[in-house]
Design a protein around this nucleic acid. Sequence first.
DNA 1: GGCTGTGAACGGCTTCACAGCG
DNA 2: CGCTGTGAAGCCGTTCACAGCC
Lengths: 214, 214
Amino acid sequence: MIEGRKIPAATISRLPIYLRELGDINREGEHVVSSRLLAERTGLTSEQIRKDLAYFGAFGTRGIGYDVRHLDLAIRRILGLTAEVPVAVVGAGHLGTALIRHLQRRESGLFVAAVFDSDPQKQGQRTGGQVVLAAEMISEVVRKAGITLAAIAVPSPSAHETLRRLAEGGVGAILNFSPVKLEHPRVVVKNLDLSTELQALAYYGPGAGGERAG
Amino acid sequence: MIEGRKIPAATISRLPIYLRELGDINREGEHVVSSRLLAERTGLTSEQIRKDLAYFGAFGTRGIGYDVRHLDLAIRRILGLTAEVPVAVVGAGHLGTALIRHLQRRESGLFVAAVFDSDPQKQGQRTGGQVVLAAEMISEVVRKAGITLAAIAVPSPSAHETLRRLAEGGVGAILNFSPVKLEHPRVVVKNLDLSTELQALAYYGPGAGGERAG
DNA sequence: GGCTGTGAACGGCTTCACAGCG
DNA sequence: CGCTGTGAAGCCGTTCACAGCC
């Protein structure tokens, strides 16, 4: 199925997992990988992997498998990670800093292009090679740098204002760590509150309840 | 439907969202809330909320709605958050620290009962009111404190070892921030790699692709 | 009349089974 | 013969529509 449009969000969310595994496999010197091996290493099923990839075209060779580097590049193209993608991080607290460090480690295809914080004490300081800028500058800086991806790691009261500024600057997707519901007609927001995640896991903690989580 | 067993994981993951909203509503002085109002405030649909709650019993009053405090308590019972639940945090880096801070803020029903790190420099220091302990002590401390819930915020190479120790200590559910696939027969693991999440969002960033995320 | 609780319809993702090709 | 690509079937969660009750 070549470009039939309407890709499941679940498929998109698995592509980075394939990407990471392909990177490892490539470093191990393997040039070809089967959906079965990829399945074993990711904990998914081989059918699911083949189906995911088939949404975007026929990347494999029947009887053989997938060319590791070729598939890696194909997935990067799909996600738009061929050139390093600039990311704006708003909030230079522990969480923002943790995220910046994360992105600096592995070659994820992403790099931190701007860091913002509303605390004057933090502004001007360096965090992960970036000078922390004032929150008032978000729209302008984001627009001029052509940043389309951002993370919100600010206290709840500032979250809506931050969203507005990022949207105004032209950002199209946001990872939101604050516990407030953020919505915007022109921005895809993925909400991810750490407390909430842990609270849900409490259900499974005692071992009495179900057994599957995400 | 009273205790029909087999609750969707999606339902469980929404319960903490209801909990937070109920807390806000209670603070605003409201004693009763309808599924419609709850839906507006959470961004979900009223049918979904009613169905979620109905899995566990009939908490509402027809024609009226749900008693705020009663429902709050009911959900806390379901999640096992009636008494404060102790959580172990492994890894006292930025991410671990961010998580600790998060849990200290709102009354989430969770509290950080132990913090571990393999770095001797960090051991003995205080982080969020807890002395950082050596990773070698995980199993023993976790078992003695009766901790059933934990978060892993350590570098990838240490992740498997950490899982083993937590499982040995009797932990039943883990929030894993490291990018390695963790599995264990007796432990529910929720994997949540920040880089992966952002990479997936890159697909939606340019605004060209689909429009829905989680 | 209003709002909950729920069977039924729907839709989307996963699993199955196999055809197609190297 | 092995492994990919894919229609079909199955499954699970969401949405719909309404019966039931206050």
